[in-house]
Amino acid sequence: MKEIEFNQCVDEYANSVYRFIVKNIGHVEDAQDIVQTAFEKLWVNRSKVEPLKAKSYLFTVAYHQMIDHIRKEKKVTITANYEEAGAKATYQKDPELKQVLLAAINELNPTQKSLVLLKDYEGYSYQEIGEIMNLSESQVKVYLHRARIFLKEKLAHLEKVAS
């Protein structure tokens, strides 16, 4: 990977990686640090990383950085202050539903949260997610399905309460 290709990666993937991290840890500065570290590592290892694999390399590095960060900080209570970072809903038409879903997602454990975000935001396949998160494909499938069912039940419960 050359300098030009690296800078293209910055253009194309910096937002995605940042979004993935900030959604996970809910802290803007820490997320920025992690993104910066990920790109730093990509630059250092640019001779070994093929341009086509750069995105998953960035996500892999960022994910593991984030896990380290979570372990260090032991941030169990995650605030949703990334809302102030200019997040705008485009999919859920219902702003209320979106709020509910965000709250539900924050109740997931970090692994499940990462799985959901990698799947929904980045559209990675189970296999790719497994590579990024160092899990087997079937683990990804089981964990992700468990997270979905949890979210579904949360939403169903809230809808019942609302109605």
Partner: peptide
Amino acid sequence: DQLKKTIQAPEDIIFDNKALLYRLPAME
């Protein structure tokens, strides 16, 4: 439908400090 609602909508979250990430020839 209920399962579909669990899908997170991609959000436009922007990383402001891209300038920190770019590599310029002068830097190297």
